[in-house]
Amino acid sequence: MSGAGFASHASNVLKGNRVLLKRRKYKDIKELVYETAGKTQVEFKHIGSEELQRIKEIIREQHRLQVRFELQLYGLCLLLAIGLVYFLVWFFYL
């Protein structure tokens, strides 16, 4: 199997994108970019300190649970690795 199938699919997608771009007029693109974009600065939503504290607590709890899960996963992998080594040593040397 060769990678030619993927390459032909990619070239077909590029051709289709070029066709779609040619359908747009430069005037429409200029208007879309310069005039309808409007603001150039980002506005962030302002929240109170109580809401911010609640969000921080949620993030900390999620992080604590994620770290706990990762440690359990590492422990399980370590036990499996030790078990595999023990089995291989027992199987080949006895």
Results as ranks from 00 to 15, higher is better:
residue 1 M to S: 09
residue 3 G to A: 04
residue 4 A to I: 10
residue 6 F to L: 13
residue 6 F to Y: 05
residue 6 F to N: 04
residue 7 A to C: 01
residue 9 H to F: 01
residue 9 H to K: 04
residue 10 A to Q: 00
residue 14 L to D: 00
residue 14 L to F: 03
residue 16 G to M: 02
residue 17 N to F: 03
residue 17 N to T: 08
residue 17 N to S: 07
residue 17 N to Q: 04
residue 18 R to T: 09
residue 19 V to N: 02
residue 19 V to F: 01
residue 19 V to M: 02
residue 19 V to Y: 01
residue 20 L to R: 01
residue 20 L to E: 00
residue 20 L to V: 06
residue 21 L to S: 02
residue 21 L to K: 07
residue 21 L to H: 03
residue 23 R to T: 09
residue 23 R to D: 00
residue 24 R to G: 02
residue 24 R to N: 04
residue 27 K to Q: 02
residue 30 K to V: 15
residue 31 E to V: 15
residue 31 E to C: 08
residue 31 E to T: 15
residue 32 L to W: 10
residue 33 V to H: 04
residue 34 Y to W: 12
residue 36 T to A: 03
residue 36 T to Q: 02
residue 37 A to E: 07
residue 37 A to Y: 03
residue 38 G to C: 14
residue 38 G to Y: 02
residue 39 K to W: 06
residue 40 T to R: 14
residue 40 T to M: 06
residue 40 T to F: 05
residue 41 Q to V: 14
residue 42 V to K: 10
residue 44 F to G: 00
residue 44 F to T: 07
residue 46 H to C: 02
residue 46 H to G: 00
residue 47 I to K: 05
residue 47 I to S: 02
residue 47 I to G: 01
residue 48 G to F: 03
residue 48 G to N: 06
residue 49 S to A: 03
residue 49 S to I: 05
residue 50 E to F: 05
residue 50 E to H: 05
residue 50 E to M: 04
residue 51 E to K: 12
residue 51 E to Q: 14
residue 52 L to V: 03
residue 53 Q to R: 15
residue 53 Q to I: 08
residue 54 R to M: 05
residue 54 R to Q: 13
residue 55 I to K: 07
residue 55 I to C: 02
residue 56 K to I: 04
residue 56 K to L: 11
residue 57 E to S: 11
residue 57 E to H: 07
residue 57 E to G: 07
residue 58 I to H: 06
residue 59 I to E: 06
residue 59 I to N: 07
residue 60 R to M: 14
residue 60 R to Y: 05
residue 60 R to K: 15
residue 61 E to G: 04
residue 62 Q to K: 15
residue 62 Q to N: 13
residue 62 Q to P: 02
residue 63 H to V: 13
residue 63 H to R: 12
residue 63 H to K: 14
residue 63 H to F: 15
residue 63 H to Y: 13
residue 64 R to F: 12
residue 67 V to Q: 08
residue 67 V to W: 02
residue 67 V to H: 02
residue 68 R to M: 11
residue 68 R to Y: 08
residue 69 F to M: 04
residue 72 Q to A: 07
residue 72 Q to D: 04
residue 73 L to N: 06
residue 73 L to C: 13
residue 75 G to M: 08
residue 76 L to M: 12
residue 76 L to N: 13
residue 76 L to Q: 11
residue 77 C to Q: 15
residue 77 C to W: 07
residue 77 C to E: 10
residue 78 L to T: 14
residue 78 L to W: 07
residue 79 L to D: 11
residue 79 L to F: 10
residue 81 A to D: 09
residue 83 G to Y: 13
residue 84 L to W: 11
residue 84 L to A: 14
residue 85 V to L: 09
residue 85 V to N: 03
residue 87 F to R: 13
residue 88 L to N: 09
residue 89 V to T: 10
residue 90 W to S: 07
residue 90 W to Y: 07
residue 91 F to T: 10
residue 92 F to D: 01
residue 92 F to Q: 03
residue 92 F to K: 10
residue 93 Y to M: 10
residue 94 L to T: 05
residue 94 L to E: 01
residue 94 L to G: 13
